[in-house]
Write a protein that binds this DNA or RNA. Structure first.
Length: 559
DNA sequence: CGGACAAGCTGA
DNA sequence: CAGCTTGTCCGG
């Protein structure tokens, strides 16, 4: 018998045949992780096929060693699909589907999740208004769960009695969710720690992005919590998305998939049938949004509206958010009025700590006016550090001020105030609206819903923006309608499938791709656009990789 | 990727 | 021409 092995060697997308030594025969199957002698060195790899017909006439070497269990055959197959879908290497996906340490044996499943599961936490059928008729069958359901509502009943509902895969948007969220699910009596494997347990079967498998590749022997359900979260997308190429991998797994296993989100992505709405809660229930799950219209405010008040200061002086625990790091993003000399710019390249400099740092070339210099030598610089655009000092003074007590990372760091608050929300609403990124919505949902989770008197405050000059309108009405559908039409008009995802190609070999590569639209280059990046993923991915796959650095981002978060 | 080997460059 | 760098090829 012969093992066809894909080596775990970057830039080597070929399989090689090896003899399976007799004593190893019962340990080697599709997915098994092995070590092989290749071209004078010993490397790891995956068995991707077991055959008796070698693909070469040359004498075969034997496998050097069996390392242990690897991805199940269906995940080996899925890795080929993912390599096509995100124009990447199979090994990148097989690595994600492999245990972090060698697994020599699998624990036997001590009863299935089914036997141990209880349905006590499940929501009753009447709680949600099903727009579609599907229930428990196969297919994709998108459930819009408001931010302050508990997702666990919806997760249990999505899992039913099956062994399922549950994805959460961060490692911490996955660990918390695993604990909650264990409390309901289910047997739960938390990835990546419990890889072997998951592979043994009979449990619910929970994890973050990489867990989309977790072993689930009898996959009966897939649930993705906070499906809109950009953390599900791998930033490095191949830029695969865990939600999309999970959906494809569900489709192949003929298992139902449930996507949960307070603000479903347009991609999710396209993939499945939307289910919403009763209007009153969804409304309860969003906090009150207070819009501070700054269009007529005195510009000298800067970021500090009367209403903000009033809120900070109240007894409420307020978290202020400003996505500008450091002390100042723009400064001018207090003596001569000259803008603080880089002596090297002329771009504006920011003040992160003591020194001035160029935002383009990262050159550093002391905080002194280059024109007149004055050390007095005034802040035209403050960053969080400076705002913190100002607000402490205005509030007469310490105030929590941070970038959006503060929303992940803080446990709870009575109110979240976005000091300059226009920066989010009007960001020059095609997903800015959805990202701003996700930010408000995140903040909403911190402060709770109307029942807890949670409050969001945004300072803006676009008070009628559809994102704000959607949150005011606790109806994310209002944004989806507008956003969907805009994407269609601009032919951006999910209306079209696009890929961004960059790197020294980009030009050679994009001109070899046929049958798709080519735009650019902008800043050395090209955009390839096609009506759908099938067209785009087939076109990309038809072109051999030229030598040199090449980065292909399919479904870029920033186009 | 990284080892093997060939071709090119340098200095005595 | 030894000793080194750089480039190209290829793996079972």
């Amino acid at each position: 018998m012969i093992a066809r092995v894909l080596p775990d060697v970057a830039a080597l997308e070929r399989v090689f045949d090896y003899l399976i030594p007799e004593p190893l025969r019962d340990q080697v199957r599709v997915g098994t992780i092995v070590r092989i002698d290749l071209h004078g060195r010993r490397v790891g790899g995956w068995v991707v096929e077991v055959t008796d017909a070698p693909a070469t006439d040359r004498p075969l070497k034997p496998l050097a060693k069996v390392t242990g269990w690897g991805p199940a055959p269906e995940l080996v197959e899925l890795s080929s699909w993912a390599a096509w879908r995100w124009a990447g290497r199979r090994s990148a996906f097989l690595r994600a589907a492999s245990p972090q340490v060698a697994v020599r044996s699998l624990p036997s499943a001590t009863g299935s999740a089914r036997a141990l599961s209880t349905r006590s936490g499940s929501i009753s059928a009447g709680d949600s208004r099903r727009i579609s008729t599907q229930n428990g069958g196969t297919g994709v359901t998108v459930v819009r769960v408001p931010p302050a509502a508990d997702v666990v009943p919806h997760v249990l509902d999505g899992l039913g009695d099956a062994d399922g895969l549950v994805l959460a948007s961060s490692v911490g969220a996955a660990a918390r969710l695993a604990r909650r699910l264990r409390d309901t009596g289910r047997r739960v494997a938390l990835m990546p720690r419990d890889w072997a347990m998951a592979a043994g079967g009979g449990c619910t498998v929970v994890g973050a992005r990489a867990a989309a590749w977790a072993p689930v022997p009898a996959l009966g359900a897939v649930v993705v919590v906070d499906e809109h979260d950009e953390a599900y997308q791998e930033e490095r190429a191949p830029t695969w998305n865990a939600r999309d991998v999970a959906l494809e797994r569900a489709r192949r296993a003929d298992a139902p998939a449930v996507l949960l989100s307070p603000c479903p992505s347009l991609e999710a709405l396209e993939a499945g049938e939307l289910v919403t809660l009763r209007r009153a229930d969804e409304r309860e799950g969003w906090p009150v949004l207070e819009i501070v219209d700054r269009r007529r405010d005195d510009p000298t008040r800067g970021l500090y509206s009367e209403r903000l200061v009033q809120l900070l002086r109240s007894e409420r625990r307020v978290v202020c958010v400003l996505n500008r790091k450091g002390r100042a993003r723009l400064l001018a000399c207090a003596a001569c009025g000259e803008l603080a710019r880089c002596e090297h390249c002329g771009a504006v400099v920011a003040q992160l700590e003591a020194t001035l740092v160029c935002r383009r070339c990262e050159q550093e210099r002391p905080a002194v006016c280059a024109a007149c030598g004055s050390t007095r610089l005034k802040v035209l655009r403050p960053g969080v550090t400076r705002v913190q000092e100002d607000l402490d003074r205005l509030a007469g007590r310490p105030v929590v001020v941070g970038t959006e990372a503060a929303l992940h760091r803080e446990e709870a608050a009575d109110a979240v105030a976005f000091l300059d929300f226009d920066q989010e609403l009007l960001a020059p990124r095609y997903r800015a609206g959805e990202e701003a919505m996700a930010l408000l949902a995140r903040a909403a989770r911190l402060v709770g819903g109307r029942d807890r008197d949670g409050r969001l405050l945004v300072q803006t000059r676009v008070p009628r923006h559809e994102v704000l309108d959607a949150v005011v009405h606790a109806d994310p559908g209002r944004l989806a309608v507008v956003e969907s039409a805009r994407r269609a008009a601009l032919r951006l995802p999910p209306e079209a499938a696009v890929a961004i190609v960059s790197g020294e070999a980009a030009e050679r590569f994009v001109f070899a791709v046929e049958g798709v639209e080519l735009l650019g280059p902008t800043d050395g990046r090209w955009m390839l656009r096609a009506p759908d993923h099938a067209t785009l991915c087939h076109a990309l796959a038809a072109v051999p990789r030229p030598p040199g650095r090449l980065r292909v981002e399919v479904d870029p978060l920033r186009a």
